[in-house]
């Protein structure tokens, strides 16, 4: 007999039974996403400044920032929850697919200037919480600016081939021989703060050169010089103490009394300084454990009379 046609007492029992089923705890992955935890992950990722046109005072996360690459100029997208011009129509599954596999909501390949190559290793819980946080950011109406890539680099279908060559997404696997702190640092650095994405030179196809991972490049993101952050004493940060590193990640102040320039200053200001001291220490512990790579990073000489 249909529950609504039951006599009131039986109906009440039926309702209680249904509610009890609904309230029963499910598997861990079904836990409510936590936007506050997501806000922390957002900060640990560097505060997503790539998606804010800081130079021109653009609204937060609304895109428009120009990123010159060897393949042309890319414009970062609007990732606010605006329905028409942002991610308002995206589902959580769309977001996770973008972060893990570099595929947009329309099924299109995304250019790896968006470092899904790093984010792919984030845990499902972190991704869900991050998405929950992004949904709380003020929506801004700002249409995405079309990229200006030289053919054939703008042909998205070719990215399928690029991914076949260069992208094998794997979840983060903790190393049981290392401490919990080291593993936390490895996870944060490789997949959230994504340090190597800026601090590694790239090959002709724009993929990271694995033998020089973290060893710096004179022409990194937006053409900026990114130093060698492996513990090589002459060409890297081998002379930095653990405290030098954690203080730097919090304040952007280097042991020589100078401050970090441009992009690194941004990700510290908007991101890493908001992390817990324990997480910054974990990243430093991880970095001090890396094999030193001797690689002197130097840009070509400035031409006479150049501005």
């Amino acid at each position: 007999m249909h529950p609504f046609r039951l006599p009131p007492a039986r109906r009440a029992w039926w309702l209680a039974f249904v509610l009890l089923l609904a309230a029963a705890p499910g598997p861990a992955a079904a836990a409510e996403p936590d936007p506050q935890r997501g806000a922390y992950i957002f900060r640990a990722s560097g505060g997503c400044t790539c998606h804010t046109d800081l130079k021109n005072g653009g609204p937060t996360l609304a895109g428009g920032r120009a990123m010159p690459t060897p393949f042309g100029v890319l414009y970062a997208t609007n990732i606010t929850p605006h329905r028409q011009t942002g991610l308002g129509a995206w589902s959580e599954a769309d977001f996770i697919r973008a972060m893990r596999r570099g595929i947009g909501a329309g099924g299109e390949h995304l250019f790896p200037a968006f470092p899904y190559t790093a984010f792919a290793g984030m845990t499902e819980r972190d991704l869900r919480d991050l998405w929950a946080y992004l949904r709380t950011v003020p929506p801004v109406e700002r249409a995405n600016r079309p990229d200006e890539l030289w053919p054939p680099f703008g042909w998205r279908f070719l990215l399928g081939f690029w991914k076949w060559l260069n992208f094998a997404p794997r979840p983060f696997e903790p190393d049981p021989a290392r401490s919990a702190e080291w593993n936390r640092g490895a996870y944060l650095s490789r997949h959230v703060a994504h340090c190597a994405e800026c601090h590694t030179p790239r090959d002709l196809s724009g993929a990271l050169r694995p033998e020089l991972r973290n060893a710096g490049t004179p022409s990194g993101p937006e053409g900026a010089l990114a130093p060698n952050i492996t513990p090589d004493p002459e060409t890297g940060v081998g002379n930095w103490s653990l405290t030098d590193m954690t203080w730097f990640l919090e304040t952007a102040l280097k042991p020589n009394g100078d401050d970090a320039q441009s992009l690194m200053g941004e990700v510290i200001e908007h991101g890493y300084r908001h992390m817990t001291p324990a997480d910054r220490k974990a990243i430093a512990v991880y970095y001090r454990s890396l094999p030193p790579i001797r690689n002197k990073v130097q840009a070509p000489p400035r031409s006479e009379g150049a501005p």
Binding site: E250, A252, D259, S262, Q298, A299, P301, R302
Partner: peptide, 27 residues
Amino acid sequence: IKELGKSCGGCHKKFRQPKEKSYKNKK
């Protein structure tokens, strides 16, 4: 001291060449 450290950027961001354009980059 941390706040003071931030004020370095007040000049450096706008008025100092980034590293890749420094005069110190030799041949």
